[in-house]
Design a protein around this nucleic acid. Sequence first.
DNA 1: CATTTCATGTAATCGGTTACATGATTAG
DNA 2: CTAATCATGTAACCGATTACATGAAATG
Lengths: 202, 202
Amino acid sequence: MKVPHISILGHALLGLIHQKPRSGYDLRKIFTETAMGSFSNSPGAIYPALERLEKQGAIAGEVVESSGLRRRRVFRITEPGEQEFKQWLSKSVTRDEVMRGMGELMLRFAFMEQALGAQAAITFLRKLRVELNAYVPGLKEYLQQHGPQMPLSGMLALDSGIRNYETLQQWVEYAIQTYQSFLATRQSSSANHINTNRGGQS
Amino acid sequence: MKVPHISILGHALLGLIHQKPRSGYDLRKIFTETAMGSFSNSPGAIYPALERLEKQGAIAGEVVESSGLRRRRVFRITEPGEQEFKQWLSKSVTRDEVMRGMGELMLRFAFMEQALGAQAAITFLRKLRVELNAYVPGLKEYLQQHGPQMPLSGMLALDSGIRNYETLQQWVEYAIQTYQSFLATRQSSSANHINTNRGGQS
DNA sequence: CATTTCATGTAATCGGTTACATGATTAG
DNA sequence: CTAATCATGTAACCGATTACATGAAATG
């Protein structure tokens, strides 16, 4: 009921549990073995985080004694948890978030399609494009003005950050196009015979 | 004397104070107004961090009553502090650091030239190049293998991360070349007139 | 004279790190 | 039988966030 605040790690866990029920050990493995390695895989981070989510009613754990293995607590997402998760995903892209680093934004995006659909992902990308276009020129201007008075390594470090944002701008264009042709392909099974799925959300 | 551990924020503060003596307010302004906006500018983060550094003997504060303004505590770096700072800068680039994100690595690099000289910066970049070249192919392979089974947004998010690393690889090449011609220019006040870049080392 | 800016702090809380503890099950 | 892996926890510590407090000097 009461969902006071959930950390980034908490939302990562929530998102993975939203995909399908998982145990703490499953989640740890994901953080150690997949590309989600930026999150802590330490039990001292994950188990307390799961406890908090459970206490908040966002997930529910059930002890499972599957075939020989040690008892596992498998968590599934609850209704309030799913609501909170979707609300988190629905948050608009702010300039501030873009400035402080893309970590949480990318996490949101990565979960977005499954939970909210492709259209939401496109909307997200469009807003991200707007914010990037508004933010990046100022960064470049800052480099041009202050660069010459900075030590070379400072200037280069700043340049690296700017290059990352420019790469991100290119990626956003690519991602939008990818999604649009993805949607086009989906709905163009109409023409004359198959019509695989008529009622995807538009 | 005892320097048990210093956080990233602590090292950022230490580096800025190493450049020249600064007050807490100066440091806060840097974090709010310059491109170092990824660090917390909140007094509840900075003043306690400064206290810790002072207690550890890495910096020393002196109250200054300059012309009309309110009293300020201006911190300067101490000998042990400078030693610790340079040791931190001298840490080698590890695969693990590269994987968990470039934040601290870039901070180190940004301060490196002033504190350790251009040669150290080049050495750092070369090691970073090695680690990137060792890490990135695995990421791309991971995407190729698992991408098709991932939701599109997950795949794109991973692609964004890979693009960032590729951009970083390009940046490293650029940065190495920039430093090499910088050094060449410096030492070429010998020949007879211009000789802009003779011998980058290969 | 009131508001803004300069400047430094403190207290509550919370989440992550590190390290340790435990016990069951499978593999060699 | 012993080691490795599966699996879940706990406790101490520490640092960051948030929000509040204070007070002096400059600005209008």
